[in-house]
């Protein structure tokens, strides 16, 4: 960790003024990812701008039109355990609680969750080439130990995965990200927030350097009857996903009115495939149909030396999780498989 100055800001305007000063000014909220990265010298800063004193965007509020607004500075734990999240968006509750640890969820904020960096081994080792950390140096993971890496949407420059669980549920729920910047506010549909690596893997998302996330909106429809979050990883808790699945179903008389399936651990962003969700529309909620949807989701998958298993694992995880969504009460703590 390099030496830096520290400033507390008390309003969004003040915060924006600070971040517009340039790259050396970094916003700190929960700090759970930033301090980790700074201690490893993956990230440096001249000035840390502490936004915790800002009184706005700390809460979870229902909007008059029925949407739920998650303040960017509310903690993951407060969000997961908010009564409206628990009752109307239990999928989000499950996904948040599958991530990190209770202590980290008590610190990490919603905005920070969207902005966390990859956990790729090579990104984390400052002495190996990594296009995400140092553009142009090459990707060490492509021909390296890539068991944890992506199988969807990769490029020849980067095969890192985005590690969030919360965002997988937000993607499934069609959340919208509210952004404030020097020009005012703007909104990004969740699917457009994170980017694929392409030839700019150092850019994780479409938030500009001089912008801040203020909140995340959830549409009124929360899929609270048929939902499930499943997370498969190398230990039962406190580990990042190899594959995770968020499923939300709207069922009527055993037929699927609407299906949402988002995946984590597979790509540089939460992964959704419209074609598969369209396929399920109007069909029976059956294992066979879920299998067909899973095939559609994974049809473009490309694996590397050590992660070929992820393709089959993801297919099976999708099917299992869709089946679990039919009976959400069977879900296990830590988003472990059940049934």
């Amino acid at each position: 960790m390099n030496d830096f100055n520290y400033t507390r800001v008390y309003s969004m305007d003040e915060a924006l003024a600070n971040v517009s000063l340039g790259k050396g000014h970094r916003v700190i909220a929960g700090g759970t990812n930033l301090i980790d990265l700074m201690k490893y010298f993956i990230t440096t800063a001249d000035e840390l701008v502490d936004i915790n004193p800002i009184s706005e965007h700390q809460t979870i509020e229902e909007l008059p039109d029925g949407r739920l607004r998650l303040g960017a500075f509310a903690t993951n734990a407060d969000t997961a355990y908010h009564p409206l999240v628990e009752s109307r968006y239990p999928l989000l509750n499950r996904a948040i609680l599958a991530g990190a640890s209770a202590q980290i969820r008590n610190m990490a904020t919603n905005g920070g969750n969207l902005l966390q960096r990859t956990r790729c081994y090579y990104f984390y080792d400052i002495n190996t080439p990594c296009n995400k950390r140092e553009p142009g140096t090459g990707c060490s993971a492509i021909n390296g130990y890539n068991r944890t890496m992506a199988i969807m949407g990769t490029s020849e420059h980067c095969i890192a995965v985005f590690p969030s669980d919360m965002c997988v549920a937000l993607a499934a729920l069609d959340a919208v990200v509210n952004i404030v910047g020097p020009e005012g506010t703007r909104q990004l549909p969740f699917a457009d927030f994170h980017r694929l690596p392409g030839n700019t893997p150092h850019i994780d998302n479409n938030l500009m350097d001089n912008e801040l996330i203020s909140s995340i909106d959830l549409p009124e429809k929360g899929f609270s009857s048929s939902y499930s979050y499943l997370k498969l990883r190398d230990r039962n808790s406190y580990a990042f996903a190899l594959v995770s699945v968020a499923t939300a179903l709207d069922l009527e008389h055993g037929l699927i009115k609407e299906a949402r399936i988002a995946l984590g651990g597979l790509a540089h962003k939460p992964w959704r495939v419209q074609e598969a969700e369209d396929f399920l529309k109007g069909k029976q909620a059956s294992k066979t149909n879920f299998e067909a949807a899973a095939d559609l989701i994974l049809q473009g998958a490309k694996s590397f030396e050590f992660n070929a298993f992820k393709i089959e694992l993801a297919k099976r995880a999708i099917v299992r999780n869709c089946m679990m969504a039919l009976d959400p009460d069977t879900q296990q703590p830590g988003a472990q498989p059940s049934l």
């Binding site: 081994y121 090579y122 984390y124 080792d125 230990r235």
Partner: peptide, 22 residues
């Protein structure tokens, strides 16, 4: 990673020892 001759998971987030849930 034998190309670099070094361990790649030199931390206890990625060097998995059991958690209580295990």
């Amino acid at each position: 990673d034998h190309r670099f001759g070094k361990y790649m998971n030199m931390n206890i987030a990625e060097y998995h020892i059991p958690v209580h849930a295990d």
